[in-house]
Amino acid sequence: MIGLLVAREVRRALGASAWLPVAFFLLVATVVPFAVGPDARLLARIGGGALWIAALTAALMPIERLVEPDRADGVLDQLAVRRIPEEVVALAKIVGHWLTFGPLLLLAALPGAALLGLDGPLLGRTLLTLTIGTPALAALAVAVASLTAGLRGASALGGLLLLPLAVPLLIFGASAAGGEGGALKLEAATALFLLAGAPFAAGAALRALRT
């Protein structure tokens, strides 16, 4: 059952605009050198953080299409009639969303790192932190999408909700990418916390949507 739901999420994301967050990610990575200048040493120093900011803004893009279309079209109601727990629906959405968001973003981080002139070890560390961080970003996006579904100005509100919640992840992720020793463990702990909590928060929000 959950496999069917995950497959549906993946199919819908690929059919819609899975490349859009990735394009946005690359765009932000491209803009950074224009803003701070072509100093290679400076770029290499802030590069990991810049990629993290790019990933965070890219995570905002799909919020609108994650839950709201299913609510408007009665799909969530039909799932509820079938007594499929909302938490399972949320988990399927998180997994499906990450599958179309995380790997593509990691791939795009390669040209992104080239644009910022990151060297090999730094790139490796950044990719590692993004691998750990993107599932948590996907989980947050689904939770926030569930909370804001059906509201006016949902996408702006979603951004306002998601960014503060992602700040701990950003702090630990970016400093781990910069080579801070203990930060990687803290990032992993934060990601795990978000990932474990999000299905329940999103599930409660989906239940509340019906009344």
């Binding site: 819908r12 408007a72 039909q78 009639v81």
Partner: peptide, 27 residues
């Protein structure tokens, strides 16, 4: 259908299928 909590009373329902206003089919 179990989608709405009644203010009072009890509802028990076997497996059911609902056709409401929404189409709920992937377009």
């Amino acid at each position: 259908a179990g989608l709405l909590q009644p203010l009072g009373g009890t509802v028990s329902c076997s497996a059911c299928a609902l056709a409401d206003e929404a189409l709920a089919l992937d377009r």
